Simulated assay, not measured.
Amino acid sequence: MTFFEDLRAAREGVLSLGFWALQVYRFGHLRYRFQSKLVRYPLGALHIVLSKVAEMLCGVTIGVSAKIGRRLVIEHSGAIVVHGNAVLGDDCIIRQGVTIGNRYMDKPLDAPVIGQRVNIGAGAKILGAVHIGDDAEIGANAVVLKDVPAGAVAVGVPARIILRKSEL
Rank of each mutant, 00 (worst) to 15 (best):
T2N: 10
F4I: 03
L7H: 07
E12K: 14
E12W: 15
W20G: 00
Q23I: 04
G28D: 02
G28N: 06
G28A: 02
L30V: 06
F34V: 02
Q35E: 13
S36G: 07
R40G: 05
G44M: 03
G44T: 01
A45S: 12
L46E: 00
L50I: 10
S51V: 02
A54N: 03
E55D: 10
T61V: 12
T61M: 10
I62F: 05
V64F: 04
S65Q: 15
A66S: 14
K67Y: 04
K67N: 07
I68R: 10
R71N: 04
L72T: 03
E75G: 10
I80V: 06
I80H: 03
V82G: 05
H83T: 04
G84D: 11
D90M: 09
D91R: 15
I94W: 00
I94A: 07
Q96A: 06
Q96V: 00
G101N: 06
R103G: 01
K107F: 13
D110F: 15
P112W: 13
G115S: 02
Q116V: 15
Q116T: 10
N119P: 00
G123C: 01
G123Q: 01
I126H: 00
V130A: 04
G133W: 14
D135R: 00
D135L: 03
E137Q: 15
N141S: 10
V144I: 04
D147Q: 08
V148T: 05
P149T: 11
V155Y: 10
V155A: 11
P158Q: 14
I161A: 12
I161V: 11
I162M: 14
K165N: 11
L168G: 07
